[in-house]
Design a protein around this nucleic acid. Structure first.
Length: 419
DNA sequence: TCTGGGGTCCTAGGACCC
DNA sequence: TCTGGGGTCCTAGGACCC
């Protein structure tokens, strides 16, 4: 276990990634919207200052007069993924152990024989210069403390983007000031429980008896408390764990009211999920589907889900067949469906499962899928489709303002600037 | 018109087994 | 006397995260 954990994260990451390629955005408030251009999921400080909250439904707030000058963009995950890898590369060259935690956050082993304040300041400069992403860095004896320190650095501009919480006395001061819900792992529900017990600050939470915390908040709460005390419970995980499941779920751009549209949508989600599966050389042994109407607008509510164990596969046709089979009994005429999805679980490495009773030839399937993936990789996703996914796609999600595909040129651009 | 998508971990309870 | 006990697998649901 490292004696010092660091957490570096990109400020307003999606917005910063957009700004890296569109200098005109640098002087304006910017928001990036979720799929379907639904709600705000990233905001620059200027946009936050105008009162735009995380998760604000954009169609409800965009009309406000003070927001007319706000630039909004549909999300472009391919771009953000590339920017994230670039940040990782910069860090990995300077820090021996880096754990990517999310698209915009990486844990660092900062157990290094250097003066950490100067070292982290230099890390920020280099990430900013090479990857064009502004960041903050926090560090301390555990991951939970590093995460807290990072949040403090973000909220207190006077700290210059850096916060060191190694010193217990310094920690104690912040603990007494900060509400308990600032802690990583303490969410809305737990905060409610704690408040009911008179706990307001992190210091209050730390003062609780460890056994009582374990009883009321399970091992999860107990671990958070130990971490805040400086007892490390969460190791640095350099190797990305093999994923447990994978999903493709979407809200429709308009209500789906016909079985044909629903079947095509779910077939398309199954096809997308199959692509993800093959890209990671995995097969799924369990598939579930769900659908539901809109919970927000007063439409009559109906929801359903169904799951089944399947023969391990990543074949688009097999997964579509199974998804549609499970979907069929869930469908009810007369409802306005808002969302559906396909979820794959029990993922195993491709080809490793014994197929004593296999009903189709894995080799033939793999060949067909490889051809399909190669054509789609070369000519763009969706060039070659399975017919049941529908060609009209009237239910497809909305993304009105996606930034251009900078990423195909990204490596060149960055290489030039790195020199 | 219009309110995201994709993950992880933990716990409880039922079925089944010896 | 004692009206089991413990293991595994599965599923659903809760809570949290970005």
């Amino acid at each position: 276990m490292p004696a010092v954990y660091g957490l570096i994260d990109g400020n307003s990451f999606y917005c910063s990634a957009e700004r890296a390629f569109a200098p005109i955005l640098r002087s304006k408030p910017v928001v990036v919207l979720s799929n379907n251009d639904g709600c705000a999921i990233a905001r620059t400080p200027e946009a936050k200052a105008l009162g735009i909250k995380m998760g604000d439904p954009w169609h409800l707030v965009r009309g406000r007069r003070e927001l007319l000058g706000v630039e909004w963009l549909s999300s472009n995950y391919a771009l953000y993924g590339d920017m994230s890898r670039r940040v990782y590369q910069v860090l990995a060259e300077r820090v021996p152990r880096v754990e990517p935690y999310s698209i915009d956050e990486m844990f660092l082993d900062l157990d290094l024989p250097v003066e950490l304040h100067a070292f982290c300041a230099e890390l920020r400069r280099e990430v900013r210069q090479v990857a064009k992403i502004p960041t903050c860095v926090g560090w301390g004896p555990t991951k939970t403390i590093a995460k807290l320190a990072n949040g403090i650095a973000k909220d207190h501009a006077e700290l210059g983007g850096l916060c060191d919480l190694r010193d217990p006395a310094v920690r104690a001061e912040w603990y007494a000031r900060l509400p308990v819900d600032e802690v990583w792992g303490i969410g809305r529900r737990t905060t409610e429980k704690l408040k009911a017990g008179g706990v307001e600050t992190i210091a209050d939470f730390l003062a609780l008896d460890a056994r009582a915390v374990r009883d009321r908040l399970t091992v999860v709460g107990a671990r958070v408390q130990a971490e805040l005390r400086g007892v490390s419970c969460l190791p640095l995980q350099m190797l990305a764990a093999t994923r447990k499941g994978l999903a493709c779920t979407r809200a429709f751009s308009r209500p789906v009211t016909t079985w044909q549209d629903m079947r095509e949508a779910v077939a398309a989600y199954a096809a997308r999920a199959a692509e993800k599966l093959r890209a990671e050389r995995l097969e799924a042994c369990h598939l579930s589907v769900f659908l539901h109407t809109n919970p927000h607008n007063g439409d009559p509510w109906h929801s359903g889900s169904r799951a089944a164990r399947i023969e391990p596969t990543s074949d688009t046709r097999a997964l579509i067949t199974e998804a549609v089979r499970l979907l069929t009994p869930l469908w009810r005429d007369g409802f306005r469906y808002a969302k559906a999805g396909v979820i794959l679980n029990d993922l195993v490495p491709a080809g490793e499962q014994a197929r004593l009773f296999a009903t189709r030839s894995p080799q033939a399937s793999a060949r067909t899928m490889a051809v399909m993936d190669a054509i789609n990789a070369r000519h763009g996703r969706g060039t070659l489709l399975v017919a049941s996914t529908g060609l009209a796609r009237s239910w497809a999600t909305k993304a009105q303002r996606v930034s251009p595909r900078y990423t195909t040129r990204l490596e060149e651009i960055l290489r030039v600037e790195a020199f």
